[in-house]
Nucleic acid binder design. Structure first.
Lengths: 164, 164
DNA sequence: GACGAGGTTGAGCACTATGGTCGCCGTAGC
DNA sequence: GCTACGGCGACCATAGTGCTCAACCTCGTC
């Protein structure tokens, strides 16, 4: 994916501070023409820079305040099959494939400890899953954020990938 | 956090399908009065149901296509100090405290493998950090999603927490 | 140096949405 | 029976939208 340029970064920063800001408000704030902001927003969406809206929703607000990471080892050749089965479990909110000892990292949410226990059971019951290890999230110490990276990109002078 | 009611869930579902939908469009779609939708949206934001806008931004679009989970063990009594230090590293996008052998799970993003390597070094260099283990995310098999839970809540008949 | 592609700009257009307030009404709880 | 709350529909003035246009400017290419 092509990285965004500094102007887009500033746009995203502004949106971060005021997600419901209107296009004209953003244009004023950034010192750009309304037209430009509108065009750039459209392009950002089209390029897939913005992920699904779901990512902004707090699972706790859906009655699932518990969050856990389940590291999972699977029979390698049944990986696709396992992925499909995991996707069918509503409480599984994300699955990523890892490099290393564990094959999958499964992020799950649950209503309470009891529910979490049975979800962990559901994971183990999936054919192809060999071993799981559940790590409960007790506290979010640094909430998800991208502003430091946004700020860096907004302040870079050119449009190419610069610092580390 | 108080869970949302089925109407709010349907509202969030609709937003998920069309994040930039106007209030009137949402009202039409849900068969509600515009006034109601507006009031509910305001309440949703006020209640903190919606997290930061950053969560929708794809780190790859910021020039950081690599993502890794770093499990970290720290000197327990220096936890706060360590958290602060980690928060100062731009590539650290989230830190959660875990129950179990590992104390922290640190989500980092990086420009390339080289950058990732030096970020891992930065983590280890934080005073109080005893041991780290980096797991590179190779593929997102199930992208983050909440729609199954939203759908369940949207279809439940009452406003209290129901099924598991 | 001329060329075209692509992005930015300001203007203008008809249409629509916004945020605010109002009174009315049904439901749930006391 | 009363109150609190949420939904409703209506109204208003203001503001934003999505769109098109022609005029730039700055690249990189030929």
């Amino acid at each position: 994916m092509e990285p965004v340029d500094p102007i887009d970064a500033r746009l995203l920063q502004a949106l971060g501070e005021e997600p419901r800001a209107t296009v004209v408000a953003l244009a004023e704030r950034l010192g750009l023409a309304r037209n430009t902001v509108q065009a750039r927003l459209t392009r950002l969406e089209a390029r897939g820079v913005l992920g699904s809206f779901d990512r902004r929703i707090e699972p706790a607000a859906l009655g699932h305040p518990l969050r856990a990471y389940v590291t999972t080892r699977v029979e390698q050749r049944r990986l696709a099959e396992v992925t499909t089965a995991l996707a069918r479990i509503p409480e599984v909110v994300e699955v990523v494939g890892l490099a290393g000892d564990d094959d999958l990292l499964v992020q799950v949410v649950a209503r309470d400890a009891d529910a979490l226990y049975s979800i962990a059971g559901s994971l183990l019951a999936v054919p192809g899953v060999e071993r799981t290890s559940t790590a409960l999230v007790m506290r979010q110490l640094v909430p998800f954020r991208l502003d430091p990276l946004l700020a860096r990109r907004a302040n870079s002078d050119d449009t190419s990938t610069r610092p580390g």
